[in-house]
């Protein structure tokens, strides 16, 4: 049985629909990300799980029990807020101890657990510090310790890393994942950063305009995007208009000079979507001309004009010679590396 279940949850503010038809089952120990641009409803959904907002429709269940009727204080969820929301008038240890105090945990056990929680996030020795005298990264760790120390059934993270600089963010991602693995805490992360979502999650819920676009593992949503939105939101992608040619046998899928055997069941006009790193330069394929070539350290980024419109290609800097600016090339890719959608909408 799933630990946390959202069943066709919806939320509207007056005439504005923030979230609709949100259904998701989270299993114990899973790390889930809600990914989408700002205003897509991901934070609203998180707040409904946390209990700060009541859903307009649908049900939320934790271990089979209805959660909506339970006030936030009784839900037993751990939350890390975007602003960290540390209590400025309390020390790090007092912040972490607060949730245990509310649970009437004995003083000796409390002290032990606070020390352990701060050590877990690498802040042993910082017990007596006030939040204002700590760096952003340290405050973030206190917030995490405060949420974890109550042994929450689900840990909710609301854009917790967005206020950190790029280097620190990467370090924290690795650490967060390690802590989550070790404790086995079921975790939901809200983020607009697709790299963060992909590197941390077991599954990603991609959202747009209040609706779920796709739920899947990082590989699934990256390699088989269910919609144009998902394809474009998770990294760069190339899209070419293609058509199935039935005048030959077996039928072929054709985009300019590129062709491949048509997959079964595909008819008419389709959109071919290929990631830039999956395209190689070959002798045959989609005819193109290199319009710019940018060196980016471990890879090259090419912008090309093809017979089917503009495209970008990324090639590893593997020491092989690369085409020059203005060179005429052909773009090719394997059938397994593309995803197809009928030109009107989803595949």
């Amino acid at each position: 049985m799933s630990l946390l279940e959202l069943d066709r949850v919806g939320k509207s503010f007056g005439p504005n629909i923030a979230v609709e038809e949100f259904s998701l089952a989270v299993t114990k120990g899973e790390f889930i990300s809600f990914l989408g641009p700002s205003g897509c409803g991901k934070t609203t959904t998180l707040q409904m799980i946390a209990g700060f907002l009541d859903p307009s429709h649908g049900a939320i269940r934790l271990e089979g029990r209805d959660l909506v009727a339970v006030p936030p204080a009784k839900r037993g969820l751990g939350i890390v807020f975007q602003s960290y929301a540390l209590f400025p008038h309390m020390t790090a240890a007092e912040n972490v101890a607060f949730g245990l105090e509310m649970r009437k945990v004995s003083r000796s056990e409390r002290e032990e657990r606070v020390r352990a929680a701060l050590a877990l996030v690498g802040l042993a020795g910082y017990e007596g510090r006030h939040p204002r005298r700590m760096s952003g990264g340290q405050q973030q760790r206190v917030a995490l310790a405060r949420a974890l120390v109550i042994r929450p059934s689900v840990l909710l993270l609301d854009e917790p890393l967005s206020n950190l600089d790029a280097r620190l963010r990467e370090d924290m991602q690795i650490e967060l994942r390690q802590i989550q693995r070790n404790l086995g805490t079921t975790t939901i992360l809200v983020t607009h950063d697709q790299i963060e979502a992909m590197s941390l999650s077991d599954r990603i819920v991609v959202m747009s305009k209040g609706r779920i676009e796709q739920i899947g593992t990082p590989q699934q949503v990256y390699e088989q995007p269910a919609s144009a939105f998902v394809a474009q939101f998770l990294g760069k992608t190339n899209e070419f208009a293609a058509a199935v040619d039935r005048t030959v046998a077996p039928a072929k899928l054709v985009a300019g000079g590129w062709s491949a055997p048509a997959p079964a069941g595909v008819t008419g006009a389709v959109t071919v979507s290929v990631r830039p790193e999956r395209i190689s330069f070959g002798d045959a394929g989609l005819a193109a001309r290199i319009t710019s070539r940018i060196f980016q350290g471990n890879h090259w980024l090419f912008q090309c004009d093809t017979e089917c419109g503009p495209a970008i290609v990324i090639r590893q800097n593997d020491g092989q010679g690369q085409p020059e600016h203005g060179a005429a090339v052909h773009l090719a890719w394997r059938a397994a590396d593309m995803s197809l959608r009928s030109a009107g909408g989803a595949a």
């Binding site: 204080a73 839900r75 540390l86 607060f98 509310m102 949420a147 109550i150």
Partner: peptide, 27 residues
């Protein structure tokens, strides 16, 4: 005040009177 601070205290199990007395008032 950071409006999320009250939510943080609620999520840790504090009742609204406790939030007022222990979190809001000192600040």
């Amino acid at each position: 005040l950071d409006p999320q601070i009250e939510n943080a205290a609620l999520s840790l199990g504090a009742g609204s009177l406790t939030v007022m007395r222990r979190i809001v008032l000192p600040q």
